[in-house]
Simulated scan of single mutants.
Amino acid sequence: MSLDFISLENIQEIAHQYGYWAIFVGILLENLGIPLPGETVTLVGGFLAGNDELNYWLVVGDAATGAAIGGTCGYWIGRIGGWSLLMRLASLLRISEVKVLDIKEKFSDNAAKAVFFGRFFALLRIFAAPLAGIAGMPFAKFLLYNLLGAGAWASAMVSLAFFAGKVVSLEQLVQWVGQFAILALLILVALIAVPLWLESRQVEEITTEE
């Protein structure tokens, strides 16, 4: 999800004007929860590097640094005030504290995977770090997976645009990546929702039998 008025043309214009700063700030803000198209910003940076307008390694470094700093800020936001905010939200949605604690425990068991692989999913990229803070993931462990995830994501996205941008247009590349991101997000939601639904069904059946 991103701000509609920030088109690909706008991002290209800003990247041409501000270069590495545009990439760093754009990705930093997205990771802080502001709905900016971080993937598109990274692809534009990689595309410009492929055209020798920017340096490949500096673009990767900018993207990784912006993602890592944004994720770290998100972690501390979740660690300091995230739990109370989550409980207020749960209360509004009429979700019991027991259920929230159960979800928190399950997330804690998979926090490292969520922080690392969450980089490659649009919404999870924003929420994984605050959720890790809420779950009480040790900061040293979070920092390790946050840095690894940010580096892997930045390298993959910039490299994709750097090489693929030589044979396809940037517009087509952004469209393909966007379509893949939606499909990946739907698969992720299904992988999370289906087991939870099956588990709730089993609990209902056991309760009915008793």
Score class of each variant (00 low, 15 high):
Phe116Arg: 11
Asn110Glu: 10
Ile126Ser: 00
Gly82Trp: 02
Leu93Phe: 13
Phe121Gly: 01
Leu101Met: 15
Val41Ile: 15
Val115Tyr: 06
Cys73Leu: 09
Ala64Cys: 09
Gly82Cys: 08
Val59Thr: 14
Gly45Cys: 06
Trp76Leu: 05
Glu97Met: 12
Asn31Glu: 08
Lys113Leu: 14
Phe121Glu: 01
Gly61Asn: 08
Gly45Thr: 05
Val60Arg: 00
Leu58Trp: 10
Val44Met: 06
Gly46Asp: 03
Gly70Gln: 04
Thr40Lys: 01
Ser84Tyr: 06
Gly82Thr: 09
Trp57Glu: 07
Leu85Arg: 12
Phe120Thr: 00
Ser84Glu: 07
Gly74His: 03
Cys73Gly: 12
Tyr75Ala: 06
Gly81Thr: 14
Pro37Arg: 01
Phe116His: 10
Leu124Ile: 10
Ala111Thr: 11
Phe120Gly: 00
Glu97Val: 07
Ile126Gly: 00
Gly45Trp: 01
Val60Asp: 01
Phe116Asp: 13
Leu54Cys: 13
Gly70His: 05
Arg125Met: 12
Ile95Gln: 04
Ile80Gly: 11
Leu92Phe: 09
Lys106Asp: 11
Ile95Thr: 05
Gly78Trp: 02
Ala112Ile: 15
Leu54Glu: 04
Gly61Pro: 05
Pro35Thr: 04
Leu85Thr: 15
Trp76Gly: 02
Leu54Thr: 05
Leu43Lys: 00
Glu105Ser: 13
Ile69His: 14
Val115His: 06
Lys104Asp: 14
Leu32Phe: 15
Val98His: 15
Ile77Trp: 11
Glu53Ile: 08
Asp109Cys: 08
Lys106Met: 08
Thr40Arg: 02
Val44His: 03
Lys106Phe: 10
Ala49Gln: 02
Glu39Asn: 01
Ala63Val: 02
Ala49Arg: 01
Glu53Gln: 09
Arg79Leu: 15
Asn51Ile: 09
Leu124Asn: 06
Ala112Thr: 08
Ser96Gln: 13
Trp57Phe: 14
Ile95Val: 12
Ile126Ala: 02
Val41Asn: 01
Gly118His: 02
Pro35Val: 04
Ser84Gly: 12
Ile80Lys: 07
Gly45Asn: 05
Gly50Ala: 08
Ala114Met: 12
Gly46Leu: 01
Asp109Phe: 13
Phe47Gly: 02
Arg125Trp: 03
Phe47Gln: 00
Ala111Asn: 14
Ala112Asp: 11
Phe107Asn: 12
Arg119Ile: 02
Val44Ser: 02
Gly70Pro: 04
Leu101Arg: 11
Thr40Asn: 01
Asp102Ser: 15
Val115Phe: 14
Ser108Thr: 13
Asp109Gly: 14
Ala114Gln: 09
Val59Ile: 09
Tyr75Asn: 08
Leu89Arg: 11
Ile95Gly: 00
Gly33Leu: 00
Gly50Val: 01
Leu123Asp: 03
Thr40Ala: 04
Gly118Phe: 04
Ala67Phe: 00
Ala67Arg: 00
Val44Cys: 06
Asp102His: 14
Phe120Ser: 03
Phe47Met: 06
Asn51Val: 07
Phe107Cys: 13
Gly46Lys: 01
Val115Trp: 07
Ser91Val: 10
Phe120Lys: 03
Gly118Trp: 02
Asn51Met: 12
Ile77Met: 10
Gly66Cys: 11
